[in-house]
């Protein structure tokens, strides 16, 4: 029996889970020798290949991702940014490359990259099975696009990946005991307000002003049985760059894409704020001095095109494709909040 399955079986409570996890991850160099991990990594590679294939065919250009910069995305809920010393000045490791995506689409209309991100997540995230401190996003952005365009791209991309992996990775999937069902776009779309109402009917008191908590996302994802979008989040639930609908103040033109079967969030995307004065006011929501975002502000004053885009977590995608319990099973050297591992 594999190490990973052994852990999953042993877990009885959070404390025990954390201890067992820590013991395993401290020796994560052993993971790659595990048969199951090899299968998972093959599926991951297939998924990445099929994503590139599809995106390239749609006219997207692959870029090399930024790793560090003077600032990074401040809109990550509860997670701390990692800092490096850059010749006596502080630089941040990308928590997401959102600011650079807006930069790129001012020159190249459709871009994507596999962007490595660091988010020093709160410690309770170690239990969720869906958070990694170090992970990769397939991050894309389209100039002059709406969030409807971005959702259209997201559902077609995901459907392509699923059917391509199901076809080319059937041996691996079979060995993993995973049955992958293909889904045809368009996927169902629910607004955040509708989802909150659905949850209330299910007896869950979801807050109409914040993101849907993880356990509730999971519950929905089980109940709906196919991939679906949650759109139109309330302002305050998301980063400053998600565009507020001019016709509906307080509502953002953004979305999450959720996997079925309880696997939760697949992608997070939005139409972007691109007007300088609006972004300035939104930046204040994080309590920061906008001066910190100097180059970004200057770029906005020069003007950037309206755009929309999203990011798909590669490890979460792998977790879904392979039917894994935890997202850390989708990396040979996983980093979890508070656990020191190679």
């Amino acid at each position: 029996m594999s190490v990973i399955m052994l852990i999953n079986r042993k877990i009885r409570n959070q404390k025990e889970m954390l201890e067992t996890l820590a013991q395993t991850l401290e020796r994560s160099y052993r993971l790659v020798r595990d048969r199951r991990m090899k299968l998972v990594l093959r599926i991951q590679a297939l998924a990445a290949r099929s994503a590139r294939e599809w995106l390239d065919s749609q006219g997207f250009l692959e870029m090399l991702p930024p790793i560090i910069g003077p600032v990074t995305d401040p809109g990550i809920r509860g997670a701390k940014q990692a800092t490096v010393d850059f010749y006596g000045r502080e630089y941040k490791v990308m928590s997401s490359a959102i600011l650079y995506k807006q930069m790129l689409v001012s020159g190249i209309p459709k871009i994507y990259f596999f962007s490595p991100n660091i988010r020093l997540e709160p410690l309770d995230s170690a239990y969720t099975g869906r958070h990694l401190v170090e992970f990769v996003q397939l991050d894309l952005e389209m100039a002059e696009a709406s969030y409807h365009d971005a959702m259209h791209t997201a559902e077609n991309l995901l459907s392509h990946i699923i059917s391509s992996v199901a076809e080319n990775g059937y041996r691996e999937l079979e060995e993993l005991g995973r049955e992958l069902r293909p889904f045809k776009p368009p996927y169902k779309r629910f607004t955040h307000a509708e989802v909150v109402e659905m949850l209330w009917k299910m007896g869950e008191k979801a807050n109409p002003n914040t993101e849907i908590p993880w356990p509730l996302e999971e519950k929905l994802s089980r109940a709906i049985g196919e991939p679906f979008f949650i759109t139109d989040y309330p302002k305050g639930a998301r980063g400053f760059y998600d565009r507020e609908d001019p016709a509906r103040p307080g509502i953002l033109r953004d979305f999450d894409l959720l996997y079925p079967e309880g696997f939760g969030e697949a992608a997070s995307g939005a139409e972007r704020e691109y007007e300088y004065s609006k972004i300035l006011a939104r930046l204040r929501e994080t309590g920061e001095n906008p001066a910190k975002y100097g180059w970004y502000q200057e770029m906005l004053r020069d003007g950037v095109p309206p755009s929309a885009g999203f990011g798909i977590g590669v490890e979460r995608l792998t977790r879904y494709l392979c039917g894994l319990t935890a997202v850390w099973e989708a990396r040979p050297y996983p980093k979890l909040a508070g656990i020191y591992s190679p």
Partner: peptide
């Protein structure tokens, strides 16, 4: 150090962002 700039909109979003980011 700066006093910080507020409007009702900024304050409301700030409160919601705090609830969202630090639910505990």
């Amino acid at each position: 150090s700066a006093p910080g700039t507020f409007t009702p909109d900024i304050l409301r979003s700030m409160i919601r962002l705090m609830r969202n980011n630090y639910p505990r």
